[in-house]
């Protein structure tokens, strides 16, 4: 196996993007080195391996950081869409509870049902507030969103206990959305700073 073939194998330690960009140049430079050095010596190969061992991990780490930033950007977009859907669901929840409350006024409704409706309105309003808070890309906004989601979840659980006939859709939205968003808000959204040149 020629020295160049061995070097080409060593180059596999570098990230694919870097290889695509610089492999030809690196092999050319290695060929130049081979012409001016004795490739049969241990010192030559120790220097080559040392160079790969020193530079490849740093370039791999930089490639992972770049990929991490791309994933973070995608998550930011998804979170924005989720926040908009949350705002709409909050509005829909408030409207639904108000309409149900008005309909209930015509018939005979007990106190627990009315209390459950009020709790439903509160939970929906908190959901709406959480959606608005997530749309603000600040640490305080995220903290406020977490508190609003937690409060909304607790209120909807209380409403469910008071009013066991709550619709499956309301339960799914009231409990599923806050739990999903609370998990999503734990994802690291700030990318690590650029590595020094």
């Amino acid at each position: 196996m020629s020295a160049e073939a061995i070097y080409r194998l060593l180059l596999r330690a570098y990230p694919p993007d870097f290889r695509a960009e610089y492999e030809r140049e690196m092999v050319l430079l290695f060929r130049d080195q081979c012409q001016e050095s004795d490739v049969r010596t241990l010192g030559f190969w120790a220097a080559v391996i040392c160079d790969v061992a020193r530079s490849a991990p740093a370039l791999r780490a930089a490639a992972w950081r770049t990929r991490g930033r791309e994933i973070t950007r995608t998550i930011e977009v998804i979170m924005k869409l989720a926040a908009m859907v949350t705002v709409l669901l909050g509005l829909f929840g408030i409207l639904n509870a108000v309409i149900e409350g008005l309909a209930g006024l015509k018939g005979t409704t007990d106190g627990t049902y009315k209390l459950a409706l009020v709790l439903g309105v509160c939970a929906s309003a908190l959901l709406l507030a959480a959606g608005v808070a997530i749309l603000r890309p600040t640490q305080r906004g995220r903290q406020a969103a977490r508190l609003a989601l937690l409060a909304s979840l607790m209120i909807i659980v209380a409403a469910r206990l008071l009013h066991p006939w709550m619709s499956v859709f309301s339960q799914l939205v009231g409990m599923g959305v806050p739990v999903t968003l609370l998990i999503a808000l734990h994802w690291p959204r700030r990318a690590s700073p650029l590595g020094a040149a």
């Binding site: 570098y14 870097f18 960009e21 610089y22 140049e25 690196m26 430079l29 290695f30 080195q33 220097a47 080559v48 040392c50 160079d51 790969v52 020193r54 530079s55 490849a56 740093a58 370039l59 590595g195 040149a197």
Partner: peptide
């Protein structure tokens, strides 16, 4: 070495 040189040049 080639790795250190081109890694630095990329940055």
């Amino acid at each position: 070495g080639p790795g250190t040189l081109y890694g630095s040049l990329k940055r």
